[in-house]
Amino acid sequence: MNYPKECWYVAATSDEVGEGFTARRIVDRPVVLFRLSDGSIAALEDRCAHRPYPLSAGHREGDLVVCGYHGCTYDATGRCVRVPSQDNPPSGAQVRAFRVVERGPFVWVWTGTAGGERLRPPPSTPWLQGDGWSSVGERRDVAANLLLLHEHYLDLTNVFEMHPELVPPGIEALPPLEEVEVSEVSVSYTRELPKAPLAPWEAQVSGLDSAESYGRKETGAFVTPGLHKQTYTITGSDGPELELVRTHGFTPESSGATHVFLQISWRGTAVAPDAGTQLAAVFHEMANRDIAVLETMQRCLDEDTTPRRYFNVKADRAAVRARRILTSMVEDERGPHHP
């Protein structure tokens, strides 16, 4: 296990959860989500308490969940309220119910120690709730562990090799990280690029004059193990022209697989009418290439029969700190006597 369990993770997007069942594996736990008649969302362990059969393979009776094996029936708190073969359910028969917070477009779930969610709320994402922002998103399943994804997006110097068409003309290298801020549980960095003409994708999304040169500011943040945020601002002579935020909800399925909930958000004085379509296409293709590399690295790690020591470079400053935080969180959860 190479990820912390005591954390809020994105279980689904709001539009994924309706009257039917949404089954997902989260931190190696089977979870089933469904929307109740009052509009709220319930999340239960996706296993009947009677026999190891998925509740998501059953059906609903109003706000109750009926197992498709013997008909054992559960309410939204996980309590077994009916066993068809006898008058009353066994005392204490229940499945675990998980705390859920819906903060569109994300549905957050806590599968860690019961009650631990009271110590901290899910991270705030105001740019995903309006105030001039628009967003488009998608969900991907990546056969790579959580740490690889965080490290990948905390070092964008790979853009010249992996995504050269996205680089503004005339910029041949990213400037060194100007500022890396570290707390006990988060890492962020800031980088400013020299003025340069627009890359083709920037011109399409913004509608700005391609003959002009613009400044750019880029930031990245390991907010929590379950959330990664990057910003990209194109600045003209009068200030920001276009602000972009790429939000990743990273949710471990297992040690070698991660659910990725991607949201691209934008606002500004220079926004093309079809910005959403353009951005969705650009970042979908970018994600395709990123995923291919990440899954290849995971296969290499799985194939290595002896530990290897890889060197770090200056551009890894933020990624190395994020690794330390994640490693420390995992070790704290294991406890001092864990082997």
Rank of each mutant, 00 (worst) to 15 (best):
A318P: 07
F34G: 03
A144S: 04
L147G: 03
P126N: 07
E241W: 00
F98G: 02
G62E: 10
L64A: 05
W133R: 09
T113V: 14
M1D: 06
H337M: 15
N2H: 10
V142Y: 00
H228D: 05
P307C: 02
H338C: 13
G62R: 04
P122R: 13
N88Q: 15
V313M: 05
T77D: 14
R139H: 03
R246Y: 06
R140L: 14
E45C: 14
F21S: 03
C67W: 13
T231V: 06
S265Y: 04
I41G: 11
L294R: 00
S265C: 07
L156C: 04
H338M: 03
P307T: 06
Q94E: 12
R120F: 01
T251S: 00
D63N: 14
Y9R: 11
R334T: 00
E138R: 15
L166I: 08
I264L: 11
D316T: 02
S40D: 12
E178P: 13
D290K: 02
Y232C: 08
A196T: 04
A173N: 13
V109L: 05
G115R: 13
W127Y: 11
E181C: 08
T157F: 05
F98Q: 06
T77R: 14
S91R: 14
A199H: 00
L326C: 10
P336Y: 05
G39K: 06
Y189M: 03
G20Q: 10
P252R: 02
L262A: 02
A97W: 08
A280L: 14
E117H: 15
P225E: 08
A322R: 07
M286N: 01
E184A: 15
R139Y: 00
S91Y: 13
T296A: 14
A275G: 01
G112L: 11
D131S: 13
P169Y: 04
E61A: 13
V83R: 10
V260W: 03
S186L: 01
S40I: 02
L166Q: 10
L147D: 14
M162V: 15
V95W: 01
P197A: 06
A203C: 01
I234C: 00
V187L: 05
S85L: 09
A203H: 13
T73P: 05
F21D: 10
R24C: 11
E179V: 06
Y189K: 07
L149P: 03
P164S: 10
P194F: 09
P164Q: 12
G220K: 11
W8N: 01
P225S: 07
D28C: 10
H150M: 03
E172R: 08
S40R: 10
Q298D: 03
L177W: 03
V83E: 04
R118A: 12
G132P: 05
R35Q: 10
E61G: 07
A93S: 15
A280H: 06
